[in-house]
Write a protein that binds this DNA or RNA. Structure first.
Length: 544
DNA sequence: GGGTCTTGCGCG
DNA sequence: AAAGCGCGCAAGACCC
């Protein structure tokens, strides 16, 4: 049996109080020492971002926590806890966005710090969970979400190993040497000159969309935007160098030398992750753009000497999660190996690429094009899976909420949406109004359709990563976080572990065992498999 | 000079 | 000007 919960609270003066489950409270003069003296406890606190980074900096790791702020958001919105006192209460400080609550450590925070009653909030949350038909379900979500908060803090603390010299070499190879401030790198400057020459626009700044638009129009190109997908299908000598320019300009502005100066220091890339930052439950990032790290620069993520990167990604995660949720045995069978090959073997479609496009269409709500055309063939072959996403779409079109495997619910559409729908029902509603409302209803249906799949896949990933974190800790033994194998990167369905070479075998096993556990945590015993692609590499660019 | 919107593109 | 979901970021445009 676990050692139970201890609730930590910080008063306005900074003093810390610990309250155990039987209600006994004690002052905690030395927090780091207190945590070390109580291993195995699940620490309950207002917000992991307000406690854990400082503890890590003092060399203290935490096994488990309950993040009240993240859990509050889930319980406030879930249809499973809609009848709870927590959900019925008016919006309060726990509903405020990240960073706005608590002791007011913001630099210009002039307001009185709000001291949150963490003991009362924890009781409300436990009651909300206990009041559901299957308390274990949403409890698993809260545990996974909280574990994710610990992982996020540790990812930032440890950082992804990053070689600035390698990154610089990549940039120089593609763009030319680093230019003086305010200048374009050589390759971009040459391309810009070429564009000006071809378009006969000597002062053109190709970074300005309106200016580019004008120059293209003057040269006789009929375009309605300067987006790549539109330019790509035009036959004109300017297109090739223009697309090349855009590609290089993107690399320079998003992940060039400026990015390197800003986000990489001491040989580590340290972005900020935001657990629960996306409505579906996916993480967002805030600074560093960790979730958009382009493939071109991944070779700069190099393992330290004597260390390796273990890169693992879950293959075709979303359709597998859909198979699990819908208990679609046919789709589970198709996913015994490569899922898209399996769909071809089932006879639904004839090419692997068609299987992929059709499946994406089912999960995103495609209605036209190849995707929309192929999707009905899936419905015949995998009726349970497709019925699940169709139901989610219909519910969204009616303005209802939908819920993931572990209990995160979608928001209700906003006031403008509701207004448009009721306006369309009015007697004097015009055809315009009605069709706009229909369009918005379908758009919300596409969102809820995707929500159940994307959100449940995010839960799988949280469970996977949480389990992996514990296993890595066990492998590390007495070693400190960054001295043993540890997570350094996360990307929706992919993780990177930085590991001493001698631990790699154990790490690979841990990654796979954690994936199998995650499947069971979401679906119990299930036919659905969650195969991983695992690569042990010296640099991230080698994987995939 | 600041804040916010728009465009375009990177990731899953 | 996306067909088909979810994001973040940078640059320029635009407004005050």
């Amino acid at each position: 049996m676990a050692a139970g919960h201890i609730i930590l609270a910080r008063a306005a003066d900074g003093s810390v109080t610990a309250t155990s489950e039987d209600g006994r409270a004690e002052a905690v003069p030395d927090l780091a020492a207190y945590l070390r003296e109580h291993p195995g406890v699940r620490w309950v606190w207002d917000d992991t971002t307000r406690w854990y980074p400082a503890l890590l900096a003092q060399g203290v790791r935490v096994d488990r926590c309950h993040d009240l702020r993240l859990c509050h958001v889930i319980l406030r919105n879930s249809v499973l806890t809609a009848g709870s006192a927590l959900a019925a209460a008016p919006a309060g400080p726990w509903d405020e966005p990240l960073g706005a609550i608590g002791g007011g450590d913001g630099l210009f925070d002039l307001e009185e710090p709000v001291v949150l009653d963490v003991v009362a909030e924890f009781r409300l949350q436990r009651d909300a969970v206990a009041g559901t038909a299957d308390p274990g379900r949403i409890a698993r979500l809260l545990a996974a979400e909280s574990a994710g908060a610990l992982v996020a803090a540790e990812l930032t603390f440890a950082g992804m190993p990053w070689r600035a010299d390698v990154h610089d070499r990549v940039l120089t190879g593609i763009l030319g040497p680093r230019p003086a401030p305010g200048e374009r790198p050589a390759c971009l400057a040459e391309l810009a000159d070429e564009l000006r020459r071809i378009l006969d626009a000597p002062d053109l700044n190709p970074d300005s969309q309106p200016a580019l638009m004008k120059a293209l129009t003057r040269a006789g190109l009929r375009v309605s935007s300067t987006a790549r997908w539109e330019l790509r299908r035009i036959d004109h000598p300017v297109i090739a160098p223009l697309l090349e320019y855009k590609k290089l300009a993107r690399l320079l502005s998003a992940n060039g030398w400026h990015w390197l100066d800003t986000w990489v220091s001491g040989g580590r890339f340290r972005p900020t992750y935001v657990p629960g930052g996306v409505v579906t439950g996916r993480w967002a990032s805030d600074g560093g753009g960790a979730l958009q790290l382009p493939k071109e620069v991944r070779s700069a993520a190099v393992a330290d000497p004597g260390w390796k990167l273990v890169v693992a990604d879950a293959s075709q995660l979303e359709p597998r999660v859909l198979a699990g949720m819908s208990r679609d045995a046919e789709l589970a069978r198709a996913g015994q190996g490569d899922l898209y090959d399996g769909i071809v073997r089932s006879g639904a479609v004839s090419k692997r690429d068609d299987a992929k496009v059709a499946m994406l269409g089912a999960m995103y709500g495609a209605t036209t094009g190849d995707s929309g055309r192929l999707m009905p063939r899936l419905a015949r072959q995998f009726p349970r899976a497709i019925a699940l996403v169709e139901h989610a779409a219909r519910a969204g079109e009616r303005g209802e909420r939908v819920t993931t495997m572990l209990g995160r619910s979608s928001p209700v559409p906003g006031g403008a949406w509701q207004l448009a729908q009721s306006a369309a029902l009015g007697e004097d509603a015009g055809e315009d109004e009605a069709s706009r409302a229909r369009g918005q209803a379908r758009a919300w249906g596409r969102f809820t359709r995707n929500f159940v799949v994307q959100g449940s896949a995010a839960e799988w990933a949280l469970c996977w990563m949480g389990g992996l974190r514990s296993r890595l800790q066990a492998i590390a033994g007495q070693r400190w976080l960054t001295d043993g194998p540890h997570l350094v990167f996360f990307l929706h369905d992919e993780v990177v572990v930085h590991s001493p070479a001698e631990d790699v075998e154990a790490v690979v096993a841990a990654v796979r065992e954690s994936a199998a556990d995650a499947g069971r945590l979401l679906f119990g015993e299930t036919e659905v498999t969650f195969p991983l692609t695992v690569a042990v590499v010296d640099h991230y660019g080698e994987a995939k």
